[in-house]
């Protein structure tokens, strides 16, 4: 029993950065823009979050800074694709390269000025330590399973839930989905297509950045790892968006399932069955492929990619 709970906890912790990144990318894609710069924006967030935490020792400022710098990366992408109508795929990939490069360069400058490995203070780490809620955290099994995560895990779930409400329960969200499906109809209906895209791309990018800050502050235990912070999670998030069929509510469970695949390799004892690590690493992508096949067979509108996603909108084009 304890082993199963440890496994679930590990899955949730490993899935949380994916949850942020997936939610952010869903908001972006719902407005009709495919942003392949998730990995880059996560790197920007990882650096900004770390540096702010390191300098100010304030976790709230760190999260805000991560959001801000990643949103800045997204702004570049939004300007190039929405205003300048540049190719979305290429721009997104460029943003990944740019984000990783910029964060590494700034990271090296930070190491140089610190004269060694920069680490956030133990007080800051304590503020991101597993929660200890009176009574609730102490309940046997349930306490560990539900009430002993670090605050960013709860923040991630809240952000995903709020995004789902925003997209499916508000008029603005409806407008955004209309822009993503068919921008010219939305435009004809009087929706400001450009504004809807800008807002969603920026907020989505910022949320990806918080996922990056999670990697540098929680996953890497608050020590700046010069080259291994985000570790490809941004790319897995792009697959996860498809897996959860562009729905932030489903992203909560979906991220934890992908997190569980990450953790399987550590929690299936080798004495029970010894499976090559590569097999576990392959599982998320196999599952994504299966989901893609199933949704394309069912041809459900609700569960497929927004029709206008990846295509730039030219108002004058007929």
């Amino acid at each position: 029993m304890t082993n199963v709970i440890n496994f679930i906890v590990a899955a949730v912790l490993s899935g949380t950065p994916l949850l942020f990144a997936t939610t952010g990318e869903i908001l972006t894609q719902r407005s009709g823009n495919l942003n392949l710069g998730v990995e880059g924006m996560m790197w920007l967030g990882a650096f900004a979050g770390f540096y702010t935490a390191y300098k100010t020792e304030n976790p709230v400022l760190a999260v805000l800074a991560a959001f801000g710098l990643a949103a800045f990366g997204a702004l570049i992408y939004a300007f190039l694709t929405v205003t300048m109508k540049a190719n979305q795929n290429v721009t997104g990939l460029t943003l990944t390269t740019f984000g990783i490069g910029l964060s590494l360069v700034m990271g090296y400058a930070m190491i140089d000025s610190a004269g060694g490995a920069p680490k956030v203070s133990s007080e800051l780490r304590a503020s991101l330590a597993p929660a200890d809620i009176p009574f609730l955290s102490d309940i046997p099994y349930v306490g560990k399973l539900l009430f002993q995560y670090n605050p960013l895990v709860y923040l991630g779930i809240a952000v995903a839930a709020l995004s789902a409400v925003y997209l499916y329960r508000t008029r603005t969200g409806l407008n955004v989905r209309a822009v993503g499906e068919n921008p010219s109809s939305a435009d004809a209906a009087g929706i400001n297509v450009t504004a809807a895209k800008y807002i969603n791309i920026l907020i989505g990018g910022g949320i990806c950045g918080i996922g990056g800050a999670y990697m540098s502050l929680v996953t890497a235990n608050g020590s700046w790892q010069p080259a291994g912070i985000v570790n490809g999670n941004g790319w897995i998030a792009v697959a996860l968006v498809i897996f959860v069929s562009w729905n932030p509510a489903k992203a909560i469970l979906g991220s934890f399932i992908f997190g569980a695949f990450n953790s399987l390799t550590n929690y299936i004892p080798a004495s029970v069955v010894e499976i090559p690590k590569a097999f576990y690493q392959m599982l998320p992508f196999v599952l994504t492929t299966v989901v893609l096949i199933i949704t394309s067979i069912r041809k459900s509108r609700e569960n497929s990619q927004p029709a206008g996603c990846g295509i730039n909108y030219f108002r004058e084009e007929r």
Partner: peptide, 20 residues
């Protein structure tokens, strides 16, 4: 085994599993 010389994410997960 993490399968990589340098992978903080996998190293943390492996260490946590050993501690668990």
């Amino acid at each position: 085994v993490t399968g990589s010389w340098y992978n903080p994410e996998a190293e943390k997960a492996a260490a946590q599993a050993l501690i668990d």
